[in-house]
Amino acid sequence: MTPGAVADWLAVVSLTAGALLSLAAAIGVLRFPDTLSRMHAATKPQVLGVLLLLLGVGLRLRSPADLGMIVLVGVFQLATAPVAAQMIGRAAYRAGRVDRNLLDVDELADR
C-alpha cells in the first residue's frame, strides 16, 4: 500500500471513531439525569470525538493550509469546551437545577 492509502485508511478509522464518540456524547446529553452529569457528556467524549474527526480530516486532506486550520480548531476546542461546561454547570447549580437525590456529597452547599 502507498503511504497515501495508509493515511486514507487511518482517516476512515479516525472519522468512524470520532462519529461514534460524538453519537455517544449526544446520547449522554439526552439520557443523563441532570445538567451537571450532562456536562460530562458534553466535554469528554465530545472533545475527543471532534479531535478524532479533525485527525481524520487532516489525514485525508494532507495540505499544510488545512492542517494549520485543523490544529487551530483542535486547540480552541480543548480550551473552550471545559470553560463552556463550567459556565453552564455553575449557572445550573446556582439556579438550583441539581437533583439532590442523586448527589452523595455536596461540599459546595456547606460552604
Binding site: G28, F32, K44, V47, L102, V105
Partner: peptide
C-alpha cells in the same frame, strides 16, 4: 482523555443505569 470518553460513553449507552454523583471541594 480516551479513558474518560470511553467511560462516559459507556454509561451513556448502558440501559437502565442512572449514575450517582457528588460535588467535592
Amino acid at each position: 482523555l480516551v479513558r474518560a470518553s470511553a467511560h462516559v460513553a459507556r454509561i451513556a449507552v448502558q440501559p437502565g443505569y442512572t449514575p450517582r454523583s457528588a460535588i467535592i471541594g
